[in-house]
């Protein structure tokens, strides 16, 4: 399998290590979490999301196991040390898109701030 690095061009997959689903980039805001309070869904005076713990649980443990297109995090360990978001079909191994994870994260931040 060859991953077309956005900056460096096509590189063999053996240069990379795989981390997991790119959902890991969407970490819930930990500032909203209060792990001392186990009361999920209770009214909160401090502005924490009512389902904050559930959100974090889902972020940590729940993954879809898709036969089809997934977004994954790959690390260019033997190359420039960059993190990539690779959109890959798990059935055909066809790679549809490769982005710098940094760009994806910054775009998300930019969008969140624009909201």
């Amino acid at each position: 399998m060859i991953i077309d690095h956005p900056l460096l061009g096509p590189r063999d997959a053996s240069e990379f290590t795989y981390l997991g689903d790119a959902a890991l980039l969407d970490r819930p805001d930990t500032a909203l979490l209060d792990f001392a309070d186990g009361a999920d869904g209770a009214d909160r005076a401090d502005g924490a999301a009512a389902n904050a713990i559930r959100q974090f649980h889902d972020y940590l443990y729940l993954r879809d196991n898709i036969a089809g297109q997934t977004r994954e995090l790959w690390f260019h360990e033997a190359g420039d040390g960059s993190w990539l978001v690779v959109t890959r079909d798990t059935v055909t191994h066809e790679i549809a898109k490769v982005e710098m994870a940094r760009d994806v994260a910054l775009a998300k931040k930019h969008n969140d701030e624009a909201k």
Binding site: R11, D12, S14, E15
Partner: peptide, 19 residues
């Protein structure tokens, strides 16, 4: 190495960090 070394792709002055 797993880099494509053909000169059309890997030209004079090009470099790659690899293994």
């Amino acid at each position: 190495c797993s880099i494509d070394l053909h000169q059309d792709v890997f030209a004079n002055g090009d470099l790659a960090q690899t293994r």
